[in-house]
Design a protein around this nucleic acid. Structure first.
Lengths: 345, 345
DNA sequence: CTGAAAGCGCTTACAG
DNA sequence: CTGAAAGCGCTTACAG
């Protein structure tokens, strides 16, 4: 460290030491072709020696963009600081990596759907755009999404891809997933399949899964029994409770399609407590393919969402939006991950 | 939106509209007592109406701090984009919440131990300090930690708390955890306990767990059998392979203490494949208490680390460091989470 | 209680 | 290829 410079070095310090003007330092360090090879090298060497790093606040202020994206997680309101939904954690991993690949930093924030969103990362120039992730009541959030669109905020959300939605959404093919797993259950000779999860437009992703499920049943000449659907949000506890309600209703069923793996895992616990065997008495399938699905006993058959691709597309789409390139909502294909809980694997 | 203002409103726009000077706007919005109640209200109303947000780049540049912390995850180098260690994900949750409570934003970044660290978040004024998280070869990273200290970077790391380490570390009581779980295994009448995990100063956390384990054995009048220790890093695959090596050695053992839950889960898989029953033939214990520990079959006995407290202390300690308050390394107590894999629960 | 002035550390026309 | 000038939008002495 040069003793002449107290505190952090600035580009002006480098300039003095290199015997050039401060703008030349700026140009050299950003690799501008307007600087001679020799000057660049000299400047780079000095910068390295002083461990000089361009002040992001200054350069962001000047260029008016931050090289940062913000990831907003919406959590179902839970009383305690409970675990984050494992599915979103895989998304987090792939989003982080996608950001890194494109040279962006990632800011993350956990939010409650109900409270005021800290959607002002962009307004305050801390981020160039937002990624919205999370389950929860969609109708509750819709008006806020509309406001984001109005204000010209750059954002993409992970969720159901439906016509007429504000902004851009990326989601997996929930309908197809619900359809395919139901076809699989039908192929295992199950005829009375319960659905655990909300099935209304408040929860459009679950609703799409339900609609795919119903479609497969209809194709097989089976009708919908309203008694076989129980509301649940995507927690293990909620799945446990939903399965209990279902059991209390006394309707016969030989399979459960849970709208998420956590719901399925909670349901398996309830079945186990009642002495019901999975899959002998009841086949169970979930949705997401969280890491735990392979570890529960028996292994949980489920619909696999490609989180790696999803994260990549979320980031790419948001960057396109920011750069004013064409960008659109997209649906990502799903595939089945079959295990013992449905008699497969 | 006021049609007279194109693009984002600035404090100067607000000042014009409110008929005051720009500094007064700045003061009013930060709640300075030097502004009359009436002026403040007027300014606040206008700011709200225009959806004005203070430009963070400008204010950070001026104040020279960012209100942001950076979380650096170090991953074991893995060929694919595999899952992040679930233990660190719980930490992430609690760190995020602790940051939010203190009004700090959180930047996250995944890094390889081997490559150059992007530890320059602070140098570039993007963050006021760093939180370092991750397993991996400690000796490989030590020199870099020393450089951080030299440069006066504010950082805390999660890891073993040992004398003579560069910087501040927060960690759980690995020694006590290794000791306690071994005492538990001894209480279950196990006498030949294998240890799966690195046991050297390259992996100080594991080494402490091992030392606690050895201490408990010694207290029980049992010696260490080097044949019963197998190296492993904290992945399921590594645990699986370590258990296989152990089995191939042909040494008798009636219990395994794995240095992490992932190792334990991999080991259980290997035992299962050989037709060995857990816990009847071999009791298995892990370390961490990741969510999966409760879901594998049989449930995994393990040492619980208090991630909620850990995240809180990491953030609080880092903030103390940044604010030049006294700060020091700390060890957090652990407790046992006993389940069926050791014949408990 | 309020305002005029300076300056945080960059990047980008503009001029040569 | 390089430099002098301006300005991004704030906050903070300083003066009144």
């Amino acid at each position: 460290m040069n003793p002449l410079i107290k505190g952090k070095a600035t580009s002006l310090d480098i300039a003095h030491l290199a015997g050039v003007s401060q703008p030349t330092v700026s140009r050299a360090l950003r690799g501008s072709p307007m600087v001679s090879e020799e000057t660049r090298k000299r400047i780079r060497a000095i910068a390295e020696e002083l461990n000089y790093k361009v002040d992001k606040n200054a350069s962001n202020l000047r260029t008016q963009h931050s090289g940062t994206l913000a990831l907003l997680f919406f959590e179902d309101p839970t009383p305690d600081d409970s675990q984050i939904n494992p599915f979103f954690l895989s998304m987090l991993g792939s989003i982080t990596r996608a950001c890194a690949r494109r040279g962006y930093d990632l800011l993350i924030s956990f939010q409650q759907l109900s409270t005021d969103w800290q959607a002002d990362y962009e307004d305050s120039n801390k981020a160039d755009g937002l990624i919205l992730l999370g389950y929860g009541d969609y109708l509750e959030s819709q008006s806020r999404l509309e406001r984001l669109v109005e204000q010209g905020t750059h954002f993409v959300r992970w969720g159901a891809v439906l016509p007429g939605q504000p902004g851009i959404s990326i989601g997996c093919d929930n309908f197809q997933g619900g359809h395919d797993i139901t076809v699989h259950l039908l192929g295992q000779e199950r005829r009375s399949i319960a659905f655990l999860g909300h099935a209304s437009n408040h929860y459009p992703e679950f609703f799409e899964r339900y609609r795919g499920h119903a479609h497969a049943l209809a194709n097989a000449g089976l009708g919908i029994q309203p008694q076989l659907q129980v509301d649940a949000i995507t927690t293990e506890r909620s799945g446990y409770e939903a399965a209990c309600s279902l059991l209390e209703r006394g309707v016969a069923f030989d399979a459960i399609f849970a709208a998420s793996d956590l719901i399925a895992i909670g349901a398996m616990k309830a079945l186990h407590e009642r002495g019901l065997e999975v899959p002998a008495d009841v086949a169970v399938a979930g949705f997401d393919d969280i890491p735990m699905a392979g570890f529960v006993n028996p292994g949980l058959s489920t619909v696999q969402q490609d989180t790696k691709l999803a994260g990549q597309i979320l980031v790419e789409t948001l960057l396109a939006l920011i750069e004013d390139l064409p960008a659109q909502s997209r649906t990502i294909p799903v595939k089945l991950a079959l295990r013992r809980s449905t008699g497969a694997g």
